[in-house]
Design a binder for these strands. Structure first.
Length: 419
RNA sequence: CGGGGACUAGUUCAUCGGUAGAACGCCCGCUUUGGGAGCGGGAAGUACAGGGUUCAAUUCCCUGGUCCCCGACCA
């Protein structure tokens, strides 16, 4: 991508109507634009990063045996009345309205009803289980107070997986596997998460598990042990911050955190309500045990920025950066330098390495460096009259520059190492 | 849903009862060239909307809208 053609350019000043680091920096660097409170448009850089984050969770769900599909955001009232959620939950956070034929319609906040209704038509035998299906789809929530940029919005991207198992034991096994897959996915996108026990909600007496990123700007409160892995959401925790860990007796602390994932035991609440059961080997009907597993790519994107930034801008983990390389051409008015930079840009393309090439002639070196720092791509490669036959390579997160040949850099990139 | 703040050029802001200004950005020219360069010229505005007070309102008052913050809420 040529920076000179990129829509849009970066801004020198942060927007006045954003307070959180993620919203300020993502706006300033040209990833997003606010559409209304809690609703954002994703610009070319933004959708590249969002797609990379989605791809990580997609791969991990596929590895679990999940099958991707996509369900409608529109929800008919009758379906939600079958599970008794149109009035309670629905009235609180679901956008509900009547269409021209006076039919009651809602916009989905979650899809247990839809997927269970579909499954009830197709799943009849124990041989049809287990079934794991997921989607990466836009959800709507009528939040009373959206805030923190991408962290709490009215419209957001969600990966939601639904599990259908023959027994509670089989369900429990999958639940643990999914938790492991989540940990791997968060690690891949550069987030350290804590697995936190939380309310099971209306579904179950068992705890649900939240995946929380500890950070001061977070709006959740997590009570956790400094030594062992005990962690509970403060909503359900009865300990105060001078208490002792119930597992190991060590000191516990309370930290702010952002919830980036949440997994639930659903039991048979939805399968019962929507008539989903299977026959076992002896021909007897058996209820289907379900689980639901949420993971929010857009919220993850905001959280990554909250965690990985400095005073100059965003510092993307390499796995989710919009491009692998920020190629900066200085002295671009010199014909030989320009030709060399363009050649290197093309060679990266041949290697399948995504490059954002700052090919502008006018701006000063300082302006180009500042833009690259703001956008936050991991590797910055400079070509100028000073660099001669080498490339000047610097990591966004480091100060030192290294001079190397194109072949050396490509070798490093393809091995994901940097010395 | 309670409480507070804001709304003026593309953006960030100043002005303050007498019909609008800077910086950045943008366009043109010249000079520059390794951390958001310099000089000169130029384009750019229904001051959120509606109503009221006044000889006169962007400015004061009222109503509404939008955005931000604190709280409540967050299966």
């Amino acid at each position: 991508m040529l920076y000179s053609k990129l829509f849009p350019k970066t801004l020198k000043q942060a927007p006045a109507d954003e307070q959180s680091a993620n919203a300020k920096l993502l706006h300033q660097a040209g990833f997003i634009r606010k559409h209304m409170a809690g609703v954002y448009n994703f610009l070319p850089l933004g959708i590249r990063t969002l797609n990379k984050i989605s791809q990580v969770i997609r791969e991990e769900m596929d590895n679990l045996g999940g099958q991707e599909m996509i369900m409608s955001a529109f929800q008919p009232r009758q379906l939600w009345e079958k599970t008794d959620r149109w009035e309670g939950l629905g009235k609180e956070v679901m956008y509900q309205f009547k269409d021209h034929s006076q039919k009651d319609v809602g916009l989905a906040i979650t899809h247990e009803e839809v997927i269970t209704a579909i499954a009830s038509q197709m799943v009849h035998s124990y041989k049809d289980l287990p079934l794991y299906v997921y989607q990466i789809q836009t959800k709507f929530r009528d939040e009373p107070r959206p805030r923190f940029g991408l962290i709490r919005g009215k419209e957001f991207l969600m990966k939601d997986l639904y599990s259908f198992d023959i027994s509670n034991q089989a369900h429990q096994d999958f639940y643990k596997q999914c938790a492991q897959a989540y940990l791997k996915a968060f690690e891949r996108v550069g987030l350290n998460v804590l697995v936190v026990e939380a309310s099971g909600g209306v579904f179950s007496k068992d705890y649900s598990h939240e995946f929380q990123v500890l950070i001061d700007s977070g709006e959740d409160k997590v009570v956790h042990c400094q030594k062992c892995d005990f962690a509970q959401n403060r909503e359900i925790c009865h300990l105060d911050n001078r208490g002792q860990c119930p597992r190991c007796g060590s000191e516990i602390v309370i930290s702010n955190a952002i919830e980036v994932g949440n997994i639930f035991h659903l039991g048979t609440r939805f399968s019962d309500a929507l008539g989903l059961s299977v026959t076992d080997e002896s021909g007897k009907p058996v209820p289907v045990t379900m689980g639901s597993y949420g993971w929010g790519p857009s919220r993850v994107m905001g959280t990554i920025v909250e965690v990985h930034h400095d005073e100059r801008g965003i510092i993307w983990p390499d796995t989710v950066a919009p491009y692998k390389i920020s190629l900066i051409g200085l002295d671009m008015e010199l014909e030989n330098v320009r030709r060399k930079a363009e050649k290197v840009y093309k060679l990266f393309g041949v290697e399948g390495i995504e490059v954002l090439f700052d090919d502008r002639v006018g701006p000063s070196a300082g302006e180009k460096f500042a833009d690259a720092d703001l956008i936050g791509i991991l590797y910055r490669v400079v070509i100028s009259k000073k660099t001669k036959d080498k490339l000047e390579v610097k990591k966004r997160s480091e100060k030192n520059t290294h001079f190397m040949t194109l072949e050396q850099l490509i070798d490093i990139l393809t091995r994901h190492k940097f010395s």
